[in-house]
Simulated scan of single mutants.
Amino acid sequence: MSRTFDELVAEAEAVSVDGWDFSWLDGRATEQRPSWGYQRAMGARVARASAVLDLETGGGEVLAGSTPTLAPVTVATESWPPNIAKATRLLHPRGAVVVATGDTPPLPFADEAFDLVVSRHPVTTWWSEIARVLRPGGVYFSQQVGPASVFEVVEYFLGPQPEASRNGRHPDAARRAAEAAGLEVLDLRAESLRTEFFDIGAVVYFLRKVIWMVPGFTVAQYRDRLEELHKQILAEGPFVAHTTRFLIEARKPIDPPHQAI
């Protein structure tokens, strides 16, 4: 017997959304993964590095699962208190330090402190700060959310979005920003990936966890739209959206650019 709308929503509202682990969605939603395998590729770089900074680590899950051996100096930053606590519990036993930071620069680290800076799905990329804390020859390696990601969900609840909003977070803009900060872009790749939600509880959980998709989302505010979507899923099958992701790797030059005299 199918579970009711109220049962599915109540379950999704009750579950914790701390950290950046989406395993609660197993069997309830699927997201195609990028071909480059970010966590594996990140782990290979972490294992070779001497000093690593993981920006916006979330609950620390990606860093902790990337490699059996972290770098001798490994630091992670996070700004959301529940995630800070979760990342500390997960990463401290691995020898990594978790630093609570704000949502605006500067980063609380000295110039040229790290030979590798990584970040998975940063809200904002502080390119000049990344360039500052990287050692010459050091690398920034990041998987980021691309333009109009999962906008089928966003526009279902908020209606059509302006073109500027749809084109935000474009990989070409990331290239320009990296180069403006003095970094050399080594790799830039983008993919559009199929995402499916199999029940309304999965949608509720997703919007509670990824809070910038529908800012201020609550079940009470969007109950009518949620009930319509529940009926649509029952009648037509999974709600399909498309996630966009891009991978960027940028290096700080060993020799600074020559300045005209």
Rank of each mutant, 00 (worst) to 15 (best):
G168F: 12
G146S: 03
P147A: 11
W126V: 06
V118E: 03
V133H: 07
G65T: 03
A96V: 13
F109S: 01
S165V: 15
L134M: 04
G137C: 11
T125M: 15
V139M: 13
E152T: 04
V154Q: 09
R135Y: 00
G137I: 06
V73T: 15
I84N: 05
S142G: 06
T88S: 14
P171K: 09
A100W: 01
V133Q: 03
S128P: 08
G95C: 05
G95Q: 13
N83K: 04
F114I: 04
F109I: 09
N167R: 13
W80R: 09
V153T: 07
P160M: 07
P136I: 08
A164V: 03
P68R: 10
T101W: 07
P68C: 12
G58A: 04
V62Q: 14
P93T: 09
W126I: 06
S79M: 13
A110M: 11
G58Q: 07
Y140C: 02
T67Q: 10
W80I: 07
S128D: 12
V117W: 04
F114E: 06
L158V: 01
V62I: 15
G168L: 11
V145E: 15
A76H: 04
E78K: 08
A71Q: 07
H170I: 01
P81V: 05
T104A: 14
V99D: 07
T101H: 02
V117Y: 09
R120L: 08
R135D: 02
G146P: 10
E61C: 01
A173S: 15
V73K: 14
V62C: 15
A100I: 00
V62F: 05
